[in-house]
């Protein structure tokens, strides 16, 4: 399995997957936006501002999922010293930062008409800001530290510490009283989102996932090229 993970083997597949995603992305984006903006009904109490949710919720999920992957790969990298995992982490981090910031900004835009405030220092919102800080530190750690061995160590350390923040984000709305509402979707429970709003939410999740995957694959390809170039120089 580790042999399959060698960058040179993966490189050939990347181009094909990127082309495939490019060919279907815009079609799904148009379907998703049509459902989210026009075809889905307004909410019984929030009215049309519910449509912000179709970007906010998937962005938050992807932001959290990206950091979970980074933490997992950092742990695996620490144990097995697979350089490829470090390259993957470097490619995931900017996407995670983008989507986490998007979740915070859209949440703020939603908060003004519904809560009556742009921002509140409650547990959920504060822990999301801390997640953004972890992303920024993670990215800075490999941008600023020139020695690669040290950069790997520092970034893995940040990722593993940051994973505890993920648990706090997840349960913040249950442990403490917050202005942010509790999760609408829970595993094993019936959802409190009506099916006519569930469909656009899921399509938008797919759209944002595909976009994230596209950026990831392109970044990853660049990282592999960079590494090869470095090795050629060394020869």
């Amino acid at each position: 399995m580790i042999k399959f993970l060698l960058p040179s083997n993966i490189y050939f597949f990347l181009g094909k997957i990127i082309k495939f995603i490019n060919s279907i992305f815009f079609l799904i984006l148009i379907i998703g936006l049509a459902f989210a903006l026009v075809l889905s009904p307004p909410d019984y109490i929030q009215g049309d501002s519910v449509r912000i949710m179709y970007v906010h919720v998937p962005s938050a999920w992807i932001g959290l999922a990206s950091f979970s992957l980074i933490s997992l790969f950092s742990i695996l990298n620490f144990v097995f010293k697979t350089k490829n995992l470090y390259l993957i982490n470097k490619s995931i981090a900017p996407i995670g930062l983008l989507f986490t910031s998007l979740a915070v900004v859209t949440g703020s835009l939603w908060g003004q008409p519904t809560w009556g405030t742009w921002w509140a220092w409650d547990a959920r919102l504060t822990s999301m800001i801390i997640l953004i800080f972890f992303y920024v530190l993670f990215i800075l750690s490999y941008k600023l530290i020139k020695k690669e061995d040290l950069a790997v160590k520092v970034s893995s350390f940040l990722a593993i510490i940051g994973s505890i923040n993920l648990i706090i984000i997840k349960y913040s709305v249950e442990w403490w009283s917050t202005l942010h509402q509790p999760a609408s979707l829970k595993l094993g429970n019936s959802s409190s989102i009506h099916s006519s709003m569930m469909l656009p939410l899921m399509i938008m999740l797919l759209v944002l996932l595909l976009y994230g995957a596209l950026i990831f694959l392109m970044k990853y390809k660049t990282e592999i090229i960079k590494m090869k170039k470095k090795n050629v120089k060394r020869l």
């Binding site: 307004p42 609408s184 989102i193």
Partner: peptide, 9 residues
């Protein structure tokens, strides 16, 4: 404070 329910009117 908004609750976690979303549905059409």
């Amino acid at each position: 404070k908004h609750d976690e329910n979303y549905m059409p009117p």
